[in-house]
Write a protein that binds this DNA or RNA. Structure first.
Lengths: 332, 332
DNA sequence: CTGAAAGCGCTTACAG
DNA sequence: CTGAAAGCGCTTACAG
C-alpha cells in the first residue's frame, strides 16, 4: 500500500513523454505551453500523485510555499485565534506556516535570505526602533509582508486592522445611551496607535451625543490587569465617576477586581467596559461589556492578502479595516 | 552594511584552505576530523557568519532542522500555551517549528516523505482509528515523534503526559477534607484515557480517606461547557449531592452556570471543581478549584525529548509524567 | 512552444 | 584524516 518513493518531476516527464522543463512550466504556470500539452501533463501529475520537493524547488530559486507569522507571543487567546485564522487560510492554498516570536529576528532574517520563506505576516506590539529596523531590512530584501493591527499606513505595506476609531465611538454612544455622564478612560501607553485611535473615536462619539469632553478623565495604563487595578485604586481614592472604560479587557478586569474588593457593585455603583472581548470577559461576574476584535478574520484576511501579493495579483484592498462590534453585557 | 550574499560552504572551505567535504563534516560532527582542523574550520565559520542553506542540506539528505507540531486546534489557551513551550524549546536549539492541525494529515505525510521535517510532536485528542493509521504510517517511515498527553504507552513511542491519576487522587483528598461526602463525577467520553485515569485516581483517593465508592455518582460528558450544563440539569432534577467534580474546567463551568441559574450558591449549596486550570477558571465567581496542567512544560519537555531523539542521544525518560497541582479556590 | 544543460548548496560514499 | 566527484530534484536562461 502506497508506493515507497515519491514520484519526481522526472517520472512525470517520462509518463507523458515530455521534458522536465515543460512539466515544470505547467506546474508553475510559467512560460507559454500549448493547451494540449498542459492537459497531458496535468493528467500525468494526477495519475502519479506528484508532489513537488520543496527543497529542490527552493534551491533552484522557486517558491518555498511557506509563510512565517511573527507574533509577540503565542499563548494569549488573542494571538492564538489569529494564528488559527492564518493556519486555515494558508492550508487552503497549500502553504505551510512557520511561527516565530518577535525576539528571534536574526533567525527570521536568515530564513528569508535563504529563500525558506515566501512572505511574512506581522503582528507587532509596540512601535519600537527594533521593529522599524527590521522592516527596513525586509524592504531591502524585497520580501512581501502584511501587517496585522497597528499598521504604519505606508502605502507600500499591506495591512489588516480593526476599526479602532469606530469601536471607541460605539462605546461612547453606548455609555451615554445607558445614562453614564462621566467616565474614567484608561488608555494604553502614549505611543500606542490602537490606544490613541480608540481615544479619538471615543471623544468623537461622546461629542456626537452632545456631551462635554471635560467629563472624560484620562489615565494611562500598560495593558496589564495589574495596571488596571493600580489606576483604579489611585483614582477612586480621591475621585468618582459613573463609568470606567479601559482600552482593553485585561485592564478592565483589574478595575473590576478593585471595585469589587471595595465592596461596590457593578454596574449599579460604577459601570465598567473594556475592549477585545478577551477569553474570560464573558464569564466574569458581572459579564463584561466590551468591543469584539475579529482576530480569526484578521489572521485569515491578512494571510489571503499575503498570498495574493505572492502570486502577483494586484491587491485591491491594501489596507483592510475590519469592523469591531460592541458586545453589551451586564457590566454597563 | 551586511554583505549582500550569504556565504556558502564553498566560501568557508576557501577561507580555511580545506575542502567542502571536511567543512561539512565539522559542521555536522560526522566522520572523524583532526582537532586542529576542527578549530580552523570553526574559526572560518564564525568569521564569515556562515548559516547552512537548509534546502541544499535537505535535498542532499541532511537534516531540515524543523519540527512539526500537530494539534487538534490552536486557539484554545490550552494548546496555545503548549505551543509556546514547543516554540521556545525549539528556538533554543535552532529548530524551526511548523504547525499543522490534525485534519491536514496528507500534507503532513508529504512533508515527512520529502524530508522537510525531522520529527513530530503530537497532541492527539481522542484515540480514533484515523490516528492509529497515521501512527502506523509514521512508524513505517521511521520518523521520530513524541506524543503529548494521552500516551499509548508503547515502549517504542516517547511521550510526555501529566499525572492524571495523581491529579484525580489529590482532588478526592481535597473534597473529603473540606467535608464533602457525596459527589457527582462528570467524566469525559468513555474511551478517553485522560478521563479514565482521573476517575481511577479519584476512586483511589476517595478510598484512601475511608469513604465509600458508592457515594460517587458517575455521569458522562463530552468535555464541552454545554455538556456540563446538560448533565447537571438532568441530574439535579431528581438527585442531590455535596459536590460536583468535572473532569475538565469547561464542563465545571457549565455546571456552575446551571447551579447559579437555579439560584443556589456555590460552594454553600454545592461545591464545584474542575480540571485543567483553564484560562477563565481563576476569574469565575466563585473562582474555580481545579487541577493545573503544566501545558508550557509539557510542550517544552516534549520538544527537548524529540530533539534528543533526533540527535541520537539515548532517551532516558521515554515516558515523562509531569505532576499536576491542585489549585484550591472559592468554589469548594 | 519545447528540450538539453547548467546550476542552486549541500552530503556522502569512495579513494587515497 | 582529507579530497574529488556524484547526486539530491528542481528552475531557468539559452537554443531551436
Amino acid at each position: 500500500m502506497g508506493r515507497s518513493k515519491q514520484p519526481t518531476i522526472e517520472d512525470v516527464a517520462a509518463e507523458c513523454g515530455l521534458s522536465r522543463a515543460t512539466v515544470s512550466r505547467v506546474i508553475n504556470r510559467s512560460g507559454v505551453v500549448k493547451a494540449a500539452t498542459v492537459d497531458k501533463v496535468e493528467q500525468a501529475l494526477a495519475k502519479l500523485g506528484y508532489v513537488a520537493n520543496a527543497s529542490a524547488r527552493i534551491l533552484s530559486g522557486g517558491s518555498s510555499m511557506t509563510l512565517a507569522v511573527v507574533l509577540p507571543e503565542i499563548w494569549r487567546p488573542y494571538y492564538a485565534t489569529l494564528l488559527q485564522g492564518v493556519e486555515e487560510a494558508a492550508s487552503q492554498r497549500d502553504y505551510n506556516v512557520l511561527i516565530k516570536t518577535i525576539n528571534r529576528r536574526d533567525s527570521l532574517l536568515n530564513l528569508v535570505r535563504l529563500g525558506q520563506i515566501d512572505g511574512l505576516l506581522f503582528r507587532n506590539t509596540l512601535p519600537s526602533t527594533l521593529d522599524t529596523a527590521l522592516y527596513r531590512e525586509l524592504d531591502r530584501m524585497d520580501v512581501p509582508y502584511v501587517q496585522i493591527g497597528n499598521a504604519m499606513k505606508r502605502d507600500s505595506i499591506a495591512s489588516v486592522t480593526i476599526d479602532n476609531i469606530g469601536g471607541g465611538r460605539t462605546m461612547a454612544h453606548h455609555l451615554v445611551d445607558r445614562g453614564y455622564r462621566s467616565v474614567l478612560f484608561i488608555t494604553g501607553p502614549a505611543d500606542n496607535v490602537d490606544s490613541s485611535d480608540r481615544i479619538w473615536g471615543f471623544k468623537l462619539g461622546w461629542a456626537e451625543r452632545g456631551m462635554d469632553e471635560a467629563a472624560i478623565i484620562f489615565r494611562e495604563g500598560d495593558y496589564s490587569k495589574e495596571s488596571g487595578y493600580g489606576v483604579a485604586a489611585t483614582f477612586f481614592e480621591q475621585n468618582d465617576v459613573d463609568a470606567v472604560f479601559a482600552v482593553n479587557d485585561r485592564m478592565a478586569l483589574g478595575v473590576l477586581l478593585y471595585v469589587k474588593a471595595c465592596g461596590r457593585t457593578v454596574p449599579q455603583d460604577v459601570a465598567i467596559a473594556g475592549f477585545d472581548d478577551d477569553f474570560f470577559s464573558e464569564y466574569l461576574t458581572p459579564s463584561l461589556t466590551t468591543v469584539r476584535q475579529p482576530m480569526y478574520d484578521m489572521g485569515f484576511r491578512a494571510t489571503n492578502n499575503l498570498i495574493l501579493l505572492l502570486e502577483g495579483s494586484p491587491l485591491k484592498n491594501q489596507h483592510v479595516i475590519l469592523s469591531a462590534e460592541l458586545v453589551a453585557r451586564e457590566s454597563t
